[in-house]
Computed example of a mutant assay.
Amino acid sequence: MPQSVSSLAAAPAGPSLLRRLARRNEIALLLSLLAVIAFFALASDTFLTTRNLTNVLGQAALPLVAGIGVAIVFISGEVDVSIGSLVAAIAIPLITIMNATESFALGVAGALALGLAVGVVNGYLAAYLGINSLIVTLGTLFILRGGVYLYTGQRAIPDDVMLESFFQLGNGRLFGVVPHPAVIAVILLIAFAYFLRHRPFGRQLYAVGGNPEVARLAGYNVRRVKFVAFVISALLATIAGILLASRLGSAVHVAGLGFEFQVVAAVVLGGVSLSGGVGSLAGMALGVLILQFVSNGLGMLNIATEWQLVITGGIIIAAVAFDELKRRRA
């Protein structure tokens, strides 16, 4: 008798688990990614090659790194659209200091200092002064881009010392196959995913994004959580900018143009809610990969850039609409 009771109690576990998995946004995104890969693999003979796949991973690394920070800001209930201009701006102290000192470490320190300063300003204005974060970061976007244009005279600043360590950061490959930026992106993704899932800050972040007032009553420092989210976003965008500068071998004034929209699109496609409190870094990463593989596949099929933009925009709108319908039914 106890055995039959135990069996009856355990019976619903399988279907219940399947239902829970089916409701997870990441499962739908993974299936969508596999469908995209399968479609382009059939449409192009060169799509499913090691060279092309590793190239896509390398291209996806920058939006993936920056997307971690943007997703964290979105989960906190705020917005950060300044990352594109920050990616261009941090290359200036990076390259300038390296040229003057021939030190890769000092160049990176200068870049991180600028990124930290931008994150602190964004976080203070949005979290502590209560200014709308979209307005704050949009203003930062224009200020940084204008500053880049003024300093560079709209000309590239080349890497004159050509340090091998700096070159390998953005152009080297692990075991001669996997691009170093992709390795760095995966390490950061795993680290921050663990951080959000298993550390107190992660719980606070979701609570603050879900309902700031309830989070405040629970004893969470809402302003501090939002402030830290902006700092993390700026520092991760700085890392993406360092990788891009290494790849380009210079500080380019047009670097990062439109990058913020590419990252925000991937984050939203990955299921991170614009209203805060919902989303995961795994979903964000899948969103980045879907858009990168779609862009790469359309390019291989010689689809005009204009149509690539139309198709990508349609995918994003469809994803957001589907997510909204799912939420209403829930």
Rank of each mutant, 00 (worst) to 15 (best):
T50V: 13
I232G: 04
F230G: 02
S4H: 10
M162C: 11
A191S: 13
G209Y: 07
G279A: 08
E26V: 13
T137Q: 11
R203G: 08
Q168N: 14
V320Y: 09
P181Y: 04
I187S: 11
D159S: 11
V183I: 14
F104V: 13
R223L: 11
Y194M: 15
K226S: 11
F201T: 09
P158C: 11
S273I: 05
V79A: 05
E78A: 11
S246T: 02
A240F: 08
V79H: 07
E26P: 09
I239D: 01
V183Y: 08
G69Q: 01
T152L: 07
A60Y: 00
A304F: 13
P2N: 15
A321P: 09
I242H: 06
L42H: 14
R223A: 15
I75F: 00
A89W: 02
L244H: 08
K326G: 11
K226L: 05
G210R: 01
M284K: 10
L325F: 10
V294E: 00
F104C: 09
N221Y: 03
G146I: 03
S246G: 15
G219D: 14
V73R: 06
V254R: 12
L64C: 07
W307K: 08
Y124E: 12
R329H: 12
P212C: 11
T54A: 11
G123E: 02
V320N: 07
Y149W: 10
Y124I: 14
F39A: 11
A113R: 03
G58I: 04
A319G: 09
A266W: 01
V65I: 15
G314W: 08
G219A: 10
H198S: 14
G147F: 01
E164Q: 13
A127Y: 04
V65W: 09
A71D: 09
V87Y: 03
V310R: 12
Y206S: 03
V73Q: 00
I232D: 02
A71T: 10
G249K: 07
T96H: 07
V177E: 12
A215F: 07
L86R: 06
A113E: 04
R20M: 06
E102A: 15
N221G: 03
L64S: 12
L57R: 02
A321G: 13
A41W: 00
S250N: 05
Q292P: 05
V254N: 15
R51S: 15
G130P: 00
V225R: 05
G147Q: 00
V161L: 15
A215E: 01
P200F: 09
G258I: 07
L150W: 07
L205P: 02
G277T: 02
T101G: 13
G115M: 02
P2C: 11
G67N: 02
V310M: 13
L86T: 06
